[in-house]
Nucleic acid binder design. Structure first.
Lengths: 174, 174
DNA sequence: CAAATAGGTCAATACTATTGACCTTGTCAA
DNA sequence: TTGACAAGGTCAATAGTATTGACCTATTTG
C-alpha cells in the first residue's frame, strides 16, 4: 500500500486525530504502570519465597514499619482488605516473631503493632531491593521527572483518598 | 529534648542528612506506587466480578486487543506467567466468545489471538474506567508531569526489559 | 530423520482474598 | 447500670491466580 500524499508520511501515524492520540497516550500510561509494577514486585516476591512468606506479608511488614504503634484497623484502611485476610498474615508474622503487639492504652480493644528487630531486618531486606530500583530510576531521570511521577501517581488515586494518602506519605503520621 | 541551635529548626526535620532524606523520598515513591495501583485496579475488578471474570482475564483481553493476531507465546512474554496459568484464562475467554484464535500461516503450531466484537466491547468497558482515571490525572498534572511519570516508570523496569517495553508501548508492534 | 519449539493438559499445591455468621472485649452515653 | 456500638478475632466455605512437574501432540527445521 503506497502513500499517495507523501507530505503526510513524515510520521508513521495520521497527524490530525487528537482523540486517537489521547487514547493512545492513556493506554501507554496504563501499560507502563502494568510493566513497572510487574518488575517492581518480582525481586521481593522471590526473596519472600525463601522465607515461606508472600507479598501480603511484605505489605503488612512495610506499613507496620512505616506506622509503628498503629492499630490493626489503620492497617486495614491502608491495605483495603478484610480483617479475615489481614488476620492470617498477622498471625504468621506474630508467630514467627517479626511483629509484636500491645493493647492500646487509650482504648484497650485496640491492638497496636510494631516490628521486632527481626521484623525490621526482614523489612529492610525486602524493601531494600525495591528502594534500589527506585533510586536507580530517580537517578536516571532527574528531580523534575520524579516530581511529575509523584504528581501523576497522586492524581491516579480516588479523589477521596488523596488528602489522606498525601498526608500519610509525606508526614508518616496517621 | 530541646533544640540547642534554633536556626536548624525552621523545618521540622533535621536538615543535614541527605541519606535520610533520600530513603524517605524512595519510600514515598514505593508507597505512592502501591496506593495508585490499589485504586487503579479497584473499579475494573468490581466490573469484572459482574461477568464472573478476574483481573487476569482483563490483562489477557487488554494485551490481545493491543496486539491483535499475536501468539500465545508473545502474551506469555508480556505477562510473565506460566502457560498453565494463561491457559485457564484463555479457555474461559474462548468459550465465552470474547477471543478467537486462528492457527498461524507462517507456523501452524502457533495460535494467533484476536478479540471478537464482544471481546472488544468488554475490553473497552473495563479499560475505559482506567483510561478515565488516567485522563483525569493527566489533565490535572500537565504534560510535563506526564512526561516525568512515563520516564520514571520506564526507569523502574528491569534494564533488559526497557528497550522491549518502550518499543512495545510506543509502537504497538511486537 | 532427529531435535527443538509452540502449545496443551493433568495433578498437586500455595497464596490471597472474599462473604457470612458469630463471638469477646471494651467504650461510652443515656 | 444497662444497652448500643466499635475493635478485633475466628470458623467455614469458596474463588481466583499462580506455581512446579510430568507428559503429550503437532510442527518446524537442521
Amino acid at each position: 500500500m503506497k502513500p499517495t500524499f507523501v507530505g503526510c508520511m513524515v510520521e508513521s501515524r495520521p497527524p490530525a486525530n487528537p482523540l486517537f492520540l489521547r487514547e493512545e497516550e492513556l493506554r501507554q500510561g496504563i501499560e507502563l504502570m502494568f510493566y513497572a509494577y510487574r518488575d517492581f514486585t518480582f525481586e521481593s516476591d522471590q526473596q519472600l519465597k525463601r522465607y515461606g512468606l508472600g507479598r501480603a506479608h511484605h505489605r503488612a511488614l512495610y506499613f507496620i514499619g512505616r506506622h509503628p504503634g498503629h492499630t490493626v484497623g489503620h492497617l486495614l484502611s491502608i491495605l483495603k482488605v478484610t480483617k479475615q485476610s489481614i488476620s492470617r498474615v498477622l498471625k504468621d508474622l506474630l508467630e514467627q516473631g517479626y511483629v509484636e503487639q500491645k493493647s492500646g492504652a487509650r482504648d484497650r480493644r485496640e491492638r497496636l503493632l510494631w516490628l521486632t528487630e527481626k521484623g525490621q531486618a526482614l523489612e529492610q531486606e525486602l524493601t531494600g531491593r525495591q528502594s534500589q530500583r527506585f533510586a536507580r530510576a530517580y537517578r536516571e531521570t532527574g528531580a523534575e521527572a520524579v516530581d511529575g511521577f509523584r504528581k501523576v501517581l497522586l492524581g491516579l488515586l480516588d479523589p477521596a483518598e488523596r488528602a489522606i494518602v498525601d498526608k500519610r506519605v509525606r508526614g508518616g503520621a496517621r
